[in-house]
Design a protein around this nucleic acid. Sequence first.
DNA 1: TATTGTTATACTCTATAACTATA
DNA 2: TATAGTTATAGAGTATAACAATA
Lengths: 153, 153
Amino acid sequence: MQPTRSASGLPATSLDRLLGYQLRRASAVMMADLARELADLEMRPAEVTALLVIGENPGCSQTEVGQVLGIKRANMVPIISRLMDRDLIDRERADGRSHALRVTETGAAVVADALARIERHEARFSELFDAATLDALHAALPLIRGQRDEAEG
Amino acid sequence: MQPTRSASGLPATSLDRLLGYQLRRASAVMMADLARELADLEMRPAEVTALLVIGENPGCSQTEVGQVLGIKRANMVPIISRLMDRDLIDRERADGRSHALRVTETGAAVVADALARIERHEARFSELFDAATLDALHAALPLIRGQRDEAEG
DNA sequence: TATTGTTATACTCTATAACTATA
DNA sequence: TATAGTTATAGAGTATAACAATA
């Protein structure tokens, strides 16, 4: 029996047995699919997730959004700016140094549209698995995050 | 009963139920850990994986390495350059337009060191799971890649 | 015509350090 | 002193388009 060969003509690598490698490749495939699904909303994955977190947590600060998503304070700035510029969220002074963020009406419509797209995207992949496997994935993956899940040092 | 609250003070988001989101976060944690583990070899994850693929496939071309790893031809150039500059691999003219790549002696030592580091890194995470869960992960993740696994359009 | 390697370039996300104005 | 937001900057990975040399 010949070794398994991929489209490249090279045999499968020993990398395939590495959890980290498989996670990275699988994640890249899903991210690319999501980006495609969100493209005509002109929203990037990071912006959409921030918008969804703000929608679920009216009045939260941008640092809190970053903590939920594992995005550093400094990197939240352009994300929030872009959501503001497009009138998807607004800010209200909270205590002089922090803002309370809320999704606008325009933003709520985008949230609804984005959620529908995300569901379609998710379905394309979760269909690959039976319920038990899906449960196993949803139980296992957060444990990996738990190993080191600090956004900010 | 109160909703689950993370370190941020915000409740867990509905994003947590998304496979793509969990994959991305888990992958980011493992990538960061791997990068840390490889840091004093002054090797980045992408360089190490390329080096390992060349080690397992003496005489392969850089396009083939890219196909195995899902890295585009254009993006292989700086990776191969850096491995060449550090004398970890060498090239031999194959057919005038392609090169046959091979790991040098220096490179073989780095491969051995990198493999040991990767094993340590992997162990830190695979220890989190029992054998059945690990099997489930290794069965499931390649299916996601299969949904769309073309490196080059 | 198709393929290999290459250049140039832009985009997305991430990381660090330092500043300001508040608290 | 610590925190929220910000600026500036660099790094790592990815994407596209185009070109020369070769097959």
